[in-house]
Each structure stands twice: as structure tokens, then as C-alpha cells.
């Protein structure tokens, strides 16, 4: 199957790489997306929120 179009700057139109471990088989693409999701969630929990150390200004 040939792609019908111009690729992006980083060409993903080639057969993907896969992580294979027993029953687990996941493409790098999906693994990166899910990994980023978990990493973002953890980062969000720990990163200080701007202004959170300001004095409360309203009653």
C-alpha cells in the first residue's frame, strides 16, 4: 500500500516499530502517546502552579 500524499517533516509512512513482550504488542507511536499522557499527569501533580503562592486577595 503506497501512501497517496506528501509526508510530514518527519516521515511516519514506513512500517512501524513495535514493543513485543509476551502478550503485549504496542507500536512506538501508541507507546509514546500513552507514556506522554502518564508523564504529563505526574508532572501536573508536582509542578507548582503560577500564583499559587500569592496571598489570597478576595474574601
Amino acid at each position: 500500500m503506497q501512501p497517496s500524499h506528501l509526508a510530514g517533516v518527519i516521515n511516519l509512512d514506513h512500517p512501524g516499530h513495535y514493543i513485543h513482550f509476551h502478550w503485549l504488542l504496542i507500536s512506538y507511536g501508541n507507546a509514546i502517546v500513552i507514556g506522554l499522557m502518564v508523564a504529563t499527569f505526574v508532572a501536573v501533580l508536582f509542578l507548582p502552579f503560577p500564583g499559587s503562592r500569592l496571598k489570597d486577595s478576595h474574601e
Binding site: 511516519l12 514506513h14 512500517p15 512501524g16 516499530h17 507500536s27 507511536g29 501508541n30 502517546v33
Partner: peptide, 13 residues
């Protein structure tokens, strides 16, 4: 999964 090396419908994991 998705054709090529693209991420697919990861929410169906």
C-alpha cells in the same frame, strides 16, 4: 494500531 508509524486509537487500549 495505525498504518505506518502513526499513533492510532490509543484510547481503545
Amino acid at each position: 494500531n495505525e498504518t505506518g508509524s502513526y499513533p492510532g486509537q490509543a484510547w481503545l487500549w
